[in-house]
Design a protein around this nucleic acid. Sequence first.
DNA 1: TTACTTTAATTAAATCTTTATAAAGATCAA
DNA 2: TTGATCTTTATAAAGATTTAATTAAAGTAA
Lengths: 230, 230
Amino acid sequence: MGEEKILVVEDDKQIKKFIRYALEKEGYIYSGADNAQDALEILVTEDIQLILLDLGLPDFDGMEVLEKVREWADIPVIIISSRDQDEDKVKALDQGADDYLTKPFSIIELLARIRVAIRHINKLSTDNLKPIFTIGNLKLDVENHNFYREGERLHLTPMEFKLLEILFKNAGKVLTTQNIIRQIWGPGYGNDTQALRTLMAGLRRKVEENAAKPQYIITEIGIGYRLRDE
Amino acid sequence: MGEEKILVVEDDKQIKKFIRYALEKEGYIYSGADNAQDALEILVTEDIQLILLDLGLPDFDGMEVLEKVREWADIPVIIISSRDQDEDKVKALDQGADDYLTKPFSIIELLARIRVAIRHINKLSTDNLKPIFTIGNLKLDVENHNFYREGERLHLTPMEFKLLEILFKNAGKVLTTQNIIRQIWGPGYGNDTQALRTLMAGLRRKVEENAAKPQYIITEIGIGYRLRDE
DNA sequence: TTACTTTAATTAAATCTTTATAAAGATCAA
DNA sequence: TTGATCTTTATAAAGATTTAATTAAAGTAA
């Protein structure tokens, strides 16, 4: 999130500076062009995720840039223009622009519309929001709620799954029993370490080859547990 | 193309009439609601492709409609509002709206922005278009609304079909009961897991050889259901 | 009507908690 | 270092609780 590279095509230095400041503050990577020629150059050499395009450029009309981009890629394009005629907006939007802002515009609106555009591309690429953890021959797919050992899917109870997820999220680190208990049973739960031990025994029976000699879930006596992560 | 059904949520009869005329002239199918209540009602009963939403509604705030819709589906929403404060725009766009137009707006700009939104959903749906699902000896033809087991066509009730479609679309993943309920009955529906269980029993009787030992629709106790996908 | 959906009641199953006991590790005096 | 003792952890099994499946009956809409 927030690491998208945005190309700003605008000849007014003042406005460009202003936009650059706002974008970088939000965590985006900025790239700038003063004219159509440079913009197209940057587009083929850099990995741009979104374009902010002014229509009034010194060399070509911004519409030509839009046309060239659309021949070639589906990068979202937000037009920023001083032309406020409806016909201009319609033409640009039908030419493939994703949004159209008229100058002067507020920077918070611009940023919100950038977020909308990025949401759209993320939906296209069907990003996996939740990670898939893999350690040794164990695999935990949190998104789809699946656990595999040596490629074979094994059933975990809800609490076993939750416990294993906590361990995976902190792989390599030692978690205190109290910490784990609080994460599973919530705060206000007594220090019922016995319940955790029982749960742990059941989980180990499924995770480990030999539960008596754990290879993954290591006990740190007097402290808690740790998932081996080499 | 041009046969999308558009829901217009707006209490001003004048504006609604105006928009209706424009939409129908463009070949869209019009559907109208005066308030939030009716809007949600229509959303669960009709197959809506796009929503034009006024924020100033008589019963609830339009933002609540937006929130409910987003809990449940990815239908594009274009806000049409007389509130022209930047903060309102940012809030709505971040809440999941796809565009924001301030009244008074020109009808040609509205139509252009509708075309942009529809372009987006068409891009989404052509990328992951799978009209006929097959798993084991089950076949689901969503396009023609047919279900086959071992080549033999079986009748499913509308809700059974919808449920099976959801399962097929997420084959291999575990779907929570709450998630399934929302997808079938729509937003604002209580956590009536019992209705789902009954529906599931009926579906299993048709899908499974032996409903007592399901081979396809697996129960993940404490979580939800999963369609086996190997 | 007829087919479908929802509600309700009963039965069944899986999961969670508790308890008892065994095993492993730590401590300390001689 | 050794062995007695205490502390901590592991496992198994019984009981309690939660969750799901099934069936039948009542309500709804075409």
